[in-house]
Write a protein that binds this DNA or RNA. Sequence first.
DNA 1: TCAAAAGTGTTTGTGGTACACCCATGG
DNA 2: CCATGGGTGTACCACAAACACTTTTGA
Lengths: 223, 223
Amino acid sequence: MPRRFPRPSVTVDVVIFTLRDDDLQVLLVKRKSAPYAGRWAIPGGFVRIDEPLEEAARRELSEETGVRDVYMEQLYTFGDPKRDPRERVITVAYFALVPAPLAVRAGGDASDACWWSMYGLPPLAFDHADILDYALTRLRYKLEYTAVGFQLLPDTFTLSELQKAYEVVLGAALDKRNFRRKILEAQVIEETGEFRTGEGRPAMLYRYRSDAVAEVRARRLFP
Amino acid sequence: MPRRFPRPSVTVDVVIFTLRDDDLQVLLVKRKSAPYAGRWAIPGGFVRIDEPLEEAARRELSEETGVRDVYMEQLYTFGDPKRDPRERVITVAYFALVPAPLAVRAGGDASDACWWSMYGLPPLAFDHADILDYALTRLRYKLEYTAVGFQLLPDTFTLSELQKAYEVVLGAALDKRNFRRKILEAQVIEETGEFRTGEGRPAMLYRYRSDAVAEVRARRLFP
DNA sequence: TCAAAAGTGTTTGTGGTACACCCATGG
DNA sequence: CCATGGGTGTACCACAAACACTTTTGA
């Protein structure tokens, strides 16, 4: 294969979502060097020459958060020639969903990484604002027709916690009775038999049924 | 930016769909050289160093078919390190929908390009079978909740032609009365006042309303 | 006994699906 | 007048949405 074409650099960027403080948050790192020194950015890095794309994304995720085995999917590939002022960089963006209690390491290891609310983001480097916009749109969309929302919660959770997660991501209030009926009828969760105590009446703890069918037929425009 | 990382090649591949002979067809080209010499492949090529990804995809589309200004969207990025046996090649796949009467040039200019039924494909080069699988899944899925199907038809069409297009893509028969009611209620098409004559009773010609809202809310798993 | 959160059913409307016959034209 | 494709309506069922009070616990 002749080298008639100069090659771009290829990176992966990983939008890492979690729930913290009843809020949808995303992990950002502070850039140390030009361009955009001091600005916040989505964590990412170069794809190694023999590394699959998703493996590169999981490596970045693991480096930033210490977690593995969480939900991740490819989001979109951003390749505008001017998106990096230095040279051509094509980035394959992924998004990951990290359960709240695992989302601990950000900012812990003295790196400048911390969680930001999706509803109050700082100015971002490169085209990262576009990437986050698109990631939120995609997350909301997926929430509507797949059972991906459980990936933001710990292994066991109460129905109120699950509803709150949906409300925070969707940015809208949901009806408690309809929510409970629908999710129980969908048979995607099951009782653990345990209860969570705290203020007020104890709540049943549920777990996600991994054998559940995770996708629901879309309402079709045409019959 | 130090060159610590050897760079992969980046290509675009374009899955070009059209309707021909009441069939969903895709444009393939015959490879002239190794690897996979003689095998059929999705048209594609290298991304130029200062060329946006979608522009590269449209350039490939135009080179193969002569058409411009048709529906195209990014599909997925395939980057397995072994997908090209020579070296690391990451490909950003797109899919395009070409109206039937424009889909003429394949095979015309002595290049080995021709249309293949999606339901009877030959053995394909690289991971192109995976790419086509995914493209068909995505096309069917999009058809369910957006008005993208019109992109496969000429400017004016009869309701029977439209229904046939949906049936061919979805691989399923649809009820005539329900189809007509639903699509007319959706207000995405309007009468032209013209008729198409032929065998049997003449049929009203419709056109797509470009001001139509093209997306429909999905049936949500949760309320 | 009070505050706080958990839990529980019914009604009404809308949209999906199934289904069979008459109409207009050309040959 | 007949073959061919175009065009039309209704009944039933399932799901979505709106809506308010009782229960259980800890302080």
